[in-house]
Computed example of a mutant assay.
Amino acid sequence: MARRAARDLRQAVAATGLDRTTATEARARAEEIETGVNARRPDRARVARALEQLTRLLAAAGSLAAAGGALIGPLHTLAGWLGALGGPVLGLLPLPG
Rank of each mutant, 00 (worst) to 15 (best):
E31Q: 12
L75F: 00
T24F: 10
R10I: 12
R29M: 03
L64W: 04
Q11D: 13
L92K: 00
G80Y: 08
R10M: 05
T16G: 09
M1G: 13
V37M: 14
L57E: 09
G86R: 09
P88W: 05
E52A: 05
L64T: 13
A26G: 02
L9P: 09
L93E: 01
G83S: 11
A65D: 12
R56W: 00
L85A: 14
V37Q: 04
P96A: 15
P42H: 10
H76D: 13
R3H: 14
P96T: 15
V13Q: 05
R56M: 01
A79W: 07
R41V: 10
P74W: 01
L82D: 01
G80D: 15
A26P: 07
L58T: 14
T77D: 15
A39C: 05
Q11P: 04
G80A: 09
R49W: 06
P96S: 13
R29F: 12
V89K: 04
T35C: 02
A60Q: 06
A5D: 08
A65R: 14
A48N: 08
G91D: 15
V89E: 12
L93H: 02
A6T: 12
A67T: 10
D43Q: 13
A59E: 04
R49C: 03
T21L: 01
V37F: 10
T55N: 03
M1W: 02
L95I: 09
R4Y: 10
T16R: 07
R7L: 15
A60K: 06
R3N: 15
S63T: 00
G83P: 00
L64S: 12
E25Q: 15
R44G: 01
G69T: 13
A14M: 06
A84R: 12
L95S: 08
G83I: 08
L90H: 05
A28M: 04
A60G: 07
Q53K: 07
G36T: 12
D43R: 12
M1K: 06
P74H: 00
T22M: 01
A70T: 10
R49I: 13
Q11N: 01
T55Q: 02
G68K: 04
A65L: 03
A15T: 00
V13F: 03
R46S: 12
A5P: 02
A12C: 12
E25N: 12
A5M: 10
A61E: 07
P94V: 07
A50P: 03
A2G: 14
L78S: 00
G87F: 11
A48F: 06
V89P: 02
R27P: 07
D8K: 08
R40A: 04
A70K: 02
A66C: 01
R49V: 11
R40I: 07
G68I: 07
G91E: 13
A12Y: 01
T77G: 02
A15N: 03
G87S: 14
A30W: 10
V13T: 09
L64K: 08
R20L: 13
R56G: 01
G86H: 04
L64I: 13
R46I: 09
A45G: 15
A23D: 04
P74D: 03
L71G: 01
H76G: 07
T55F: 02
A59I: 00
A79M: 10
A45R: 15
A5H: 04
